[in-house]
Design a protein around this nucleic acid. Structure first.
Length: 636
RNA sequence: GCCGAUGUGGCUCAGAGGCAGAGCAGCUGAUUCGUAAUCAGCAGGUCGGCGGUUCGAAUCCGCCCAUCGGCUCCA
């Protein structure tokens, strides 16, 4: 007999060789029904695992991330099996679970099209209906290579060859289909319920662009049809919020064939952009920054000195002026450094904080451009801080507080990642360790939880990245703080210390919005186009019901404009319902409906885009309310 | 850059070898209306670009450009 302990502290005895699934059934049929995988002695494992020793067990349902991955992974095997049945020549690469589903990479002469989806789904459903048991087997490395070589599964053979010689290699079988897989898996194919193939994509074998491009099918699966429907509905909602769609509908910006990756900002988009800049400028003045502006085009020598000419050339644009080589700046730091070098600096000036709305150009590959999120010309809300080594921690804390102030303003939550020394980097390990420790200390001093991205730092120093989460739970990297001991060296930056001697300053590079373009894209999706009043291109629209109220409408307009509110009126001879509809679609925060009643009482009938009809208010009261909402940057 | 798809009035889309269409938006006129679409008329397109096949190409073929979904990369 084996003694099994359960999460609630109870113990049960079972025959040796009892499966975890049987144990679950013994505890409760419902538990067994919902169980996707089990954790036995702290290891996630198949429900079909037979128990031969004492241990503690916990059953995981679909709500657990680990179980969800098992569920999706088994789903990917079902998809692979279906594809193999339909196109027997297909070779398999890998088919993992991912965040919201799974994919499988195939190598086949058949080119998949979305028309194949119905066919594959049908076959998958037939496999699910057959409810094949999913059986684990273990082979030696040699046996496994032989097994997959016989089946001409070249990719699997390559994968196995990379495993250690003494590795025990597991394969999972369902019906006629066998796949190399570490597992764990569902007990049978019938456990998979609602499936949907989502999209097709090319993907390089092992993510290497020099290797063969395979065909990837993305799909997802859920244990209940309603969960799948709900997921698809959310995707649909996300599409409605797509900043490219909203940007067009709300007249914020356009991307044209004439300038791929170079966005045009339209008048309404510029209002948002300017408001973001105003907020930025005011917050930075308060935080002790001095604003500068450096040129977009600078000569070759500068870029050679900074290292960009050698290390960043593929991403840069070049030009010639009077036969001399120049480059369009891909980063602002060399310009900022030149500004620093205009004066002799004393330690008394430190920390010296300079900030710049810096327009940079980077040549991105055509395939990666994406609305405002990934462009070829963008403005960074950059800053370079020069300081003493002993000021690092306090200064980083200061930047983190500023970042927090900014993100809270938009209602974003965020998490932090720390990236450490990459393989290709400048400087000694000691300097890197000191810098990395300084960042850690600053993070810990702020009580900030963080994740480490080993080897993901910039070539000149480690960095902290801020990833903010939007209203659809997607994350975006925006802010970064990079500690740099290298550029000061390359550019021979100095300051005069207390001792009267020259010393080397430390430098921080940092952005908060990241890029104005991307940030505008993100907040457009985050707010679904319904920007808070302080950002809204039009804050109030005045809607006279008939021509009789035009004069009063003009008075109201004058009043609002005098109060500094962005107001416009819609005097067209359309029905009020029509004007309201248009105002709603434009997501204008407030619509003022003006009829005879309002004219007589000298009031305005207020409609809020989300809260609907708010009733009549005095014009002064309304104006004061909106002004306060704008001033306090209220999200409503 | 690579794989796949797409490209038709300002917008959303139909048309799949034989006269370029619809709805919305726009303009003109009528209507003067109370919280998400009033009616009528008018105007608007070298069907992404270049080349080819054909008596005839938006439609078939080739190349290029851009966009979309991914790979890779990143603010």
């Amino acid at each position: 007999m084996v003694n099994i302990s359960l999460p609630d502290g109870r113990h049960r005895e079972y025959q040796e060789g009892t499966s975890l699934l049987q144990i679950a059934e013994d505890i409760s049929p419902k538990l067994a029904k919902n169980a996707v995988a089990a954790v036995f002695n702290d290891k996630v494992t198949d429900l079909t695992t037979l128990v031969y020793k004492d241990g503690k067990v916990q059953f995981l349902d679909f709500d657990h991330e680990k179980a969800r991955n098992v569920y999706r992974h088994s789903s990917s095997h079902v998809m692979a099996q279906a594809v193999k049945r339909l196109w027997p020549e297909t070779k398999f690469a890998i088919g993992p679970a991912i965040d919201k589903g799974f994919y499988y990479d195939f190598d086949t002469d058949h080119t998949f099209t979305p028309d194949d989806f119905a066919l594959i789904e049908k076959e998958m459903n037939s496999i699910i209906k057959s409810d094949y048991p999913i059986v684990r087997r273990e082979l030696s490395k040699e046996e496994a290579i032989q097994f997959f070589a016989d089946r001409k599964e070249d990719y699997k053979v390559e994968l196995i060859r990379d495993l250690p010689d003494d590795a025990i290699i597991s394969v999972y079988q369902q019906g006629e289909f066998v796949d190399l897989c570490a597992g764990p898996h569902l007990p049978s194919t019938g456990k998979v319920k609602a499936i949907k193939l989502m999209s097709l994509a090319g993907a390089y074998w092992r993510g290497d662009e020099n290797k063969k491009m395979l065909q990837r099918i993305y799909a997802t699966s859920f244990p209940k049809q309603v969960m799948l429907d709900d997921y698809l509905h959310k995707l649909e909602e996300a599409r409605k919020r797509d900043h490219r769609k909203l940007g067009k509908e709300l007249g914020l910006f356009v991307l044209l064939d004439e300038g791929p990756g170079f966005p045009f900002f339209l008048p309404k988009g510029m209002v948002i952009r300017n408001e973001l800049e105003n907020f930025w400028r005011q917050a930075h003045q308060q935080a002790g920054y001095q604003e500068i502006r450096t040129p977009i085009i600078l000569n070759r020598e500068l870029w050679e000195q900074s290292g960009h000419w050698d290390h960043y050339k593929d991403n840069m644009y070049f030009t010639k002026i009077d036969d001399q080589d120049f480059a369009v700046k891909p980063m602002n730091c060399p310009g900022g450094i030149l500004v620093y070098k205009q004066n002799l600096h004393s330690y008394r000036e430190f920390p010296l904080r300079t900030c710049e709305m810096g327009l940079v150009h980077r040549h991105e590959m055509s395939g990666v451009l994406h609305g405002l999120m990934r462009v070829r010309a963008f403005t960074q809300d950059d800053a370079h801080i020069f300081m003493l080594p002993e000021q690092i921690i306090a200064e980083i804390k200061g930047v983190m507080e500023l970042v927090d102030l900014f993100y809270k303003q938009f209602g974003f939550t965020y998490h932090v990642e720390l990236s450490t020394q990459p393989e290709k980097s400048m400087g000694t390990k000691e300097v890197w360790d000191a810098a990395t420790d300084a960042l850690k200390e600053a993070l810990e001093g702020q009580g900030m939880a963080y994740k480490i991205n080993a080897g993901d730092g910039a070539f000149y120093g480690p960095k902290i990245d801020f990833h903010l989460q939007d209203s659809l739970d997607r994350t975006w990297q925006c802010g970064t703080i990079q500690l740099d001991f290298q550029m000061p060296e390359k550019f021979d930056l100095t300051y005069i210390g207390e001792d009267g001697e020259k010393h080397r300053p430390v430098m921080i590079h940092r952005v908060i919005y990241g890029s104005m373009e991307r940030f505008i894209g993100i907040i457009t999706e985050h707010f679904g186009g319904a920007f808070p009043a302080w950002l809204a291109p039009v804050q109030v629209r005045v809607l006279p019901i008939t021509e009789k109220q035009h004069e009063y409408a003009a008075q109201v307009m004058d009043n609002l404009k005098a109060a500094g509110i962005r107001a416009e009126s819609d005097p067209r001879s359309e029905k009020i319902g029509y004007k309201i509809r248009e105002g709603q679609l434009q997501k204008i925060p407030y619509l003022l409906i003006l009829g005879d009643k309002e004219v007589q009482s000298g009031t305005v009938a207020v409609r809020h885009r989300k809260e609907g009809d708010l009733g009549q208010q005095g014009l002064e009261a309304f104006s004061a309310m909106v002004s306060a909402e704008i001033k306090d940057k209220v999200i409503r």
